[in-house]
Nucleic acid binder design. Sequence first.
DNA 1: TCGTCAAACTTTAGCTCTGAAATCTTCTGG
DNA 2: CCAGAAGATTTCAGAGCTAAAGTTTGACGA
Lengths: 203, 203
Amino acid sequence: MHARATLVRMTTDKPSPAAEKPPRATPLEFGIAEQVALYQREFPTVDPQVETIVQTLNRVSRRMGVAYDRQLTVLGITSAEWEVLKALVVSGSPYRLGPGDLAKRLGLTPAAMTHRIDRMVTEDLVTRERDESNRVRVIIELTENGRDKWLESMRMAAVFEEELLQDISSEERAALSGLLARMLRRIEESQPDALGRTADLAP
Amino acid sequence: MHARATLVRMTTDKPSPAAEKPPRATPLEFGIAEQVALYQREFPTVDPQVETIVQTLNRVSRRMGVAYDRQLTVLGITSAEWEVLKALVVSGSPYRLGPGDLAKRLGLTPAAMTHRIDRMVTEDLVTRERDESNRVRVIIELTENGRDKWLESMRMAAVFEEELLQDISSEERAALSGLLARMLRRIEESQPDALGRTADLAP
DNA sequence: TCGTCAAACTTTAGCTCTGAAATCTTCTGG
DNA sequence: CCAGAAGATTTCAGAGCTAAAGTTTGACGA
C-alpha cells in the first residue's frame, strides 16, 4: 500500500477560506501507528514492535515536558530556573550551595551558572552572598519564595502525573516500573556516561 | 532516615590529589531511588510509585536522546539536520518538499528553515532549486548522500534499540507497549495541543 | 613581611539558533 | 497591465551557552 498517511492535524490542502491562526511554529505530527508504518515503508527491516515502544515512550516523555513547561510558565519561572531550585531543595536544609557546586550538578560551565543566578536573584528566587568565613566562596541560598515555587510545582506535577496514570492499576504500575527500570539498567550498562545535559526536568 | 544519598559519580569532597580532567559540563546525577527519596523528604505527599515511574521513563528517554546524538555525531550530522532528513524520507519518493512545508512539519518559522537548509545544502544533504512550473516555489530534495545518512542512522538506532530491550520478552514488550499507549492516550486527551517542539528525535 | 600561586567566581567576547518583521520575487485575477 | 497575494529570503535582534581572560581572596614558603 501507499498510505498517504493523513496528518493528525488539518491538512491545508483544500482551499479553506476560513483564515485560521497563521502557522505559529507548531509541528505537524503523525500518530504512532502511522509513523511506524512510514518507517517500515522506507526501512523495511525495522522491528515494528520495538519501534512502537520507542516512539511511544519518547512521545510520552516529550508531552510530559511540554506539560511541565506550561505549569512552570503559570508559576512565572523557566525550566532552567526550576533546575536550580530543585538542586537547592534536594541539597536539603539550609538550602545553600556554591555556584561552582551548582554548575557541576547541572552540567553547566561556571559562567553560565553566574548568568542564571543573576536572573534568579532579581526574581527573588535565591540570594547571593559572600561566605564570610572564606571570602573566595559565594553562597547561593534558596529564598522562601523560591522554595514555595518549587513546592507548588511539585503539587501541580503530582496532580498531572496521577491523572496520567489514572487508568493503570497498581499491579500494572508495578509491572511498568519494573520494565522501565530494566530498560534503564540496560542503557546504563551499555552507555555508562550518557548523562543527559538536561538533568531531570521532571517533575 | 536522613540518607546523605551518595552521588552516582565521584564526590570531590575528600582531598583527592590526583588532578583528574577538570569538570567539563557533565551533570552529577542521583539514582532513581535516591532521587525519589530526596523528593519524599522535601515533599512528603509525593507518591513514590508514580514518581519512580515518571522519573525512570524520563531518564530512559533522555539517555536514548544522548545515545542518538552520539550516533549522529559519528555520521557527521546534527539532530536538527536529522529532523529534516526524516521529514523528507517520510514524505516518500521523490523525497521533495518546499521550505514552507518543511517548516510546518518541524514547527519552525520559515526563517529558521531557510538557515537550516543553507547549511544542509553546503553539506550535500539536500539540494535547493526553483520549481520551474511555479517559480515562486522552491523545492528541497534529498540527495543520495542525505538518504544514505538517514538509512545509516536507522541501522544504528535499530541495533541500539534491540540491545535496549534485550532482556524483555516478547510478551512483556507487548504489555509495555500497551501501557505506554494508554499513558499517551491519557496525556493527549488532557492536553490535546501539547505537541513538543522537538518532533520525534527518535530514532 | 612579602611575593607568588591557586581557587572560585565574574566578565567579556563570540558563537549558534531562533523569531519577528521587512523585502524581494513571482504568480493570479480583474 | 497592474494590484495584491503567496512563498521564500534577508535583516535585525535576543536568548543562552562556552572559552578565555580578569578579579578577588586565601595559602604558603622564603
